[in-house]
């Protein structure tokens, strides 16, 4: 057994412990934190498994954004404990059947790390051997994501957009507007204010680095959008939502969210107009590889724009809610 495999197994066992604690706990905040821990541990597992882009995203999204939104929502909900009686019989049966089936199905999978596995044989070698040459992008994950399977990524962008649209639709008209101390004042503590004031520009700079360096290293539009949004949220937490809204009014955020989708789709349509297939970046420039590079740059920018603005819109929608209470 290799060291890496042992590390993976240890981390998985640790996650299983956390899941066990999660299942037993009635405390909702503890449940959120345990889920965050599981997510962060999975990011470590992804790193061990060479999936650096995935690890990056899971750490930013699963451990970061999901935890942030959950804690925000818990505050708005005013719920602390899950007191109701759990059902046991049917869930246990279903889990037993599904788990048994999966154990059966995974039993003859190729061993961990086997380079001769069927999954390694057919399509993947093409990406690894030709991806860098055909797209001019050394990070093959970015090449597959933005070009070979660019239509999936367009769909993924629409999914995020749909979520933002859905949150705005569901929470429309039920928010609080006008002055409210908790939302408005932010944090008055001088240490926090000073630290955040110094930190936010670096967070934004890092986001830009991740956005434009995604061709060469882990990163890309999605991770960059999340980090940029995190910088904005940090700013709003410290200096109050109104200060952020002065820079980024909701109407502008909505426009940006739409613009990201249009940019991605627009690149696709531009390819159509120039006689290629939808999202065939090769027709965008004289040289096919230059076209690929340009197309990937533009669609990643679209992803970054929409992800960033949707994240901030969602955060704002939850923060603007009245706490607790019944209609």
């Amino acid at each position: 057994m290799s060291v890496e495999y042992g590390l993976t197994l240890t981390l998985l066992a640790f996650m299983l412990l956390a899941a066990w604690a999660l299942a037993r706990s009635d405390d909702l905040l503890a449940a959120v934190m345990l889920a965050g821990i599981i997510s962060l541990a999975s990011a470590a597992v992804f790193t061990v498994m060479d999936a650096v882009d995935v690890a990056f995203t899971e750490a930013a999204v699963g451990a970061g954004v999901a935890t942030l939104l959950s804690v925000r929502a818990l505050g708005v909900l005013g719920e602390r404990r899950a007191a109701g009686r759990a059902r046991v019989g049917l869930p246990f049966l279903v889990v037993l059947v599904c788990g048994g089936l999966l154990l059966y199905g995974t039993a003859d999978l190729p061993a961990y790390g086997d380079p001769a596995a069927p999954a390694m044989q057919h399509v993947a070698p093409h990406y690894l051997a030709r991806g860098g040459v055909e797209t001019g992008v050394p990070n093959i994950v970015t090449a597959v994501l933005a070009s070979y399977r660019g239509f999936d990524t367009f769909g993924e962008l629409v999914v995020i957009f749909t979520a933002g649209l859905g949150v705005l639709t569901l929470l429309a008209g039920s928010g609080v507007s006008g002055a409210r101390s908790e939302v408005d004042a932010g944090d008055r503590d001088i240490i926090v204010r000073q630290v955040v004031k110094w930190l936010v520009p670096f967070v934004l700079l890092f986001a830009l680095y991740v956005q434009f360096h995604g061709d060469y290293g882990p990163g890309g539009g999605f991770q960059a959008g999340v980090i940029f949004a995190a910088g904005m949220v940090l700013y709003a937490l410290t200096f109050g939502l109104p200060r952020l809204e002065r820079v980024l009014p909701p109407s502008r955020l909505r426009l940006l969210a739409a613009t990201g989708v249009w940019l991605y789709g627009g690149v696709g349509v531009a390819c159509l107009l120039r006689g290629g297939a939808f999202l065939d970046y090769a027709v965008l420039a004289e040289d096919a590889v230059d076209g690929q590079h340009l197309g990937i740059l533009l669609v990643e920018l679209g992803v970054g724009l929409t992800v960033f603005s949707v994240m901030v819109l969602i955060y704002r929608a939850f923060t603007r809610q009245r706490h607790g209470g019944v209609e």
Partner: peptide, 16 residues
């Protein structure tokens, strides 16, 4: 550098 700035700040906020 980031850890040295953010860590103590987080501890401070928690204690407060």
């Amino acid at each position: 550098l980031f850890a040295w700035v953010s860590g103590p700040t987080a501890s401070h906020v928690l204690a407060r």
